[in-house]
Every structure is written in structure tokens, then in C-alpha cells.
Amino acid sequence: MKNKKLIWILLLLALWQAVALSGRVSPLTFPSLGMILKALVSSIMAGELLSQTVFSLVIILEGLLIGTLLALVLAIVSRTGDTMNSFVDTLITLAHPLPGIALLPIIILWLGTGRSAIVFIIVHSVLWPLLLNIIAGFKATPKLYSDVGRNIGLRGIKLFYDIYMPSSLPYLISGFKIAWARSWRALISAEMVFGAVGGKGGLGWYIFKQRVFMDTAGMFAALLLIMLIGILIEEVFFNKIEKQTIRRWGMAEK
């Protein structure tokens, strides 16, 4: 499977190169692989692309962290009784369909165009899918496990932590995958709209800026970097976590 993917990627790259070198497209709008790679290497060497990437990743991590904490708190609150359950349910119904980027004008009005505005948008795009998945995980926890837990003397928060959490791990992980993808998207679009935040602008701003300079190869270099980071997180990071937990425990694909 992995090898097949690699072959397809190579084929697509070859196709790209063939089109770029065919002479029918202008290298100004459709740069060759060599130009893109050169732009990638030179902008990494110059330090700007990397520092913009780090800037973006730090914001994402911050948003993910806050979003996760909020999701956990709300999930626990929703378990405390029917009233709270319906409250959290209502919140999700209202907020989940709202794309983060649609909130932009309001957020600019409230928080300005600073860093905190981007973090806010990321928290919004992380919180709801994560919360939905955590709650689904709790609901899918077999009664058998909680019976066993109560039988051996677990109650309250301990029951929650030792039984419900590990039992909903498959849901948590897929929630994080969705959250990661959404936050990444929200971040790039927010950075493009906001422009340079606090002197830096992040990856989104970098891509936008390269267009102004008509540096097409540079734009693609940044896109390539975004893809590479995505693959790294998806295939390496999440894959590794799944291998060490739910796949090892026979809990994957339920």
C-alpha cells in the first residue's frame, strides 16, 4: 500500500515535470520541479520559510491545546446530568456548522488582527469536532466496562479517567485527526486574510506575499512544505500513536 502510494506520487511528479517542460506553459505561472525545489531550498536556507512555519505551528499547538482542554471540560460537564447534556448538545448544534473563517470579520472587530484572533479561530475549529468525538466515544463505551469498573470499586472521576478515557481512545484519535486538519486550514486562511501578524505572518501570509512578488515557484515551495508537514503528522505521528495503542490493543476499526 505504502509502496503503491510512492509510485503514484512519482508518476504525478513526472506528469508535472512533463507539462512544465512542454513549452506550452509559462514558467512564470507553471514552474518546473527544479525551480520549485530551488525556491524551497533557498527560502529554507534564507531562514524565512522555516521561521514562518515554526510561527504557524506554534499557533496551531496553542490552539489545539486550548481546544482540547475546553473539549474535555465540556465533555465531562455534559456527563453530569440531562440538563448539562442538553446544554452542551445545543452549543454543538449552534457552533459546529459555523466555519471558522466566517467568524473572521467579527473576530477582527472584537480582538483585532493580532495573534489571539488566529488562536481564537483555531480553537473554534478544533473544539467542536473534538468534543463531538469525545462524547461519541463515551457513549460507545460498553456498559460492560463501566460495570467492571464499578465492581472493583471505581467511582466518579476515577471511573471516568480509568475506564471511559481509554475506552474512547479510538474516537479521541480520529477526533484529533479531524481537529488537526481543520486547524491547519483555518490557520492558513486566517493568516492570508490578516496579513503580517506581529512582524511575522506565518505560512499563509508567506504564500500570499510570494504572489505579490510573482514568485510562483516560491508559492509552490510553501504548498509543498504544507503537504510534507501534513504527511509527516498523518502518516508518521498519528500512525505511530495508533500502532502503540489502539491497534496493539485490538481496538482499531470498530
Partner: peptide, 9 residues
């Protein structure tokens, strides 16, 4: 009766 009473993790 259910075999799944052990904690899988």
C-alpha cells in the same frame, strides 16, 4: 458471559 469483560488496553 461476555468474553469482552477484560479491559482491552
Amino acid at each position: 458471559q461476555d468474553f469482552n469483560q477484560l479491559l482491552p488496553w
